[in-house]
Amino acid sequence: MRRVLVLLPAWAWLLAFVAAPAVILLGIAFGTGAEGVPPFRWPFGPGLAWQGSFGNLATLIQDEFYRDSLWRAALLAGSTAVLTLLLGFPMAFAIARARRGWRVPLLALVLLPFWTGFLLRMGAFIGLLRDQGLVNAALLGLGLIEEPLTLLYTEGAMLAGMVHAYLPFAVLPLYATLSRLDPVLEQAAADLGATPATVFWTVTLPLALPGVVAASLLVFIPAAGEFVIPELLGPSDALPVGRVLWQEFFSNRDWPMAAALAVALLALLIVPIRLFQRAS
């Protein structure tokens, strides 16, 4: 009984702000567009009479544009996950093996970007990367280039922004796993003839695997729906699903199509979410 009372607020919260919106979203996805506010008709009319459409779902599957946006989102989230792992693993390892008094300050440094607004940081990226930006100014000043490089609104700028924004989400779970890994195990491996590289592949990495899985999913899942960073830093033709979703909702005011896209994204993310649950 007491357990129920403790869990009740959490369940109520999830029901009101996760489950109910998801059901509404699913409803809109099967609705049809209409003039008015809101700009759609529910799939069920008075007396639960079916007036919906599977057209959006069909478009989603048939139209290359939408399929491509899902694929691009997966690609962007995947490369972000891989790059944050490659950067985050050595960082987390170094923090976990730092002197006791150093660990908390170093972790605080990882979280330091969160102290500044997200949009402000993206603005800073623009300031760095634009044609008259700091990077180009520095390269020109050093005489390394003759003309400014096109850095902003490229795939590279988008990826840099993504990696910057999601790196802490990789470092924290990796740190949690690596700080629990007993260095004596690595010493034992070395004592039995393993070179440092072999120690890493046979002992450190296998034992850190739960953290690697957690980190890659914690980055991949939100990154797949990311819209702000591609919008601000990416090329105009980079249209991952998050950005397409935004356009359908706010530019085209095609709520049913946008809802169908959101449902498709959610369906695609269920696979890694299930993996995450099994791993943790």
């Binding site: 007993d182 004596v184 195990l185 010493q187 491996a189 039995l192 002992v203 296998p206 034992l207």
Partner: peptide, 12 residues
């Protein structure tokens, strides 16, 4: 070779 006090067996 060394036998560690905590044994240091590889758990995986």
């Amino acid at each position: 070779h060394m036998m560690f006090q905590s044994y240091a067996l590889f758990p995986h």
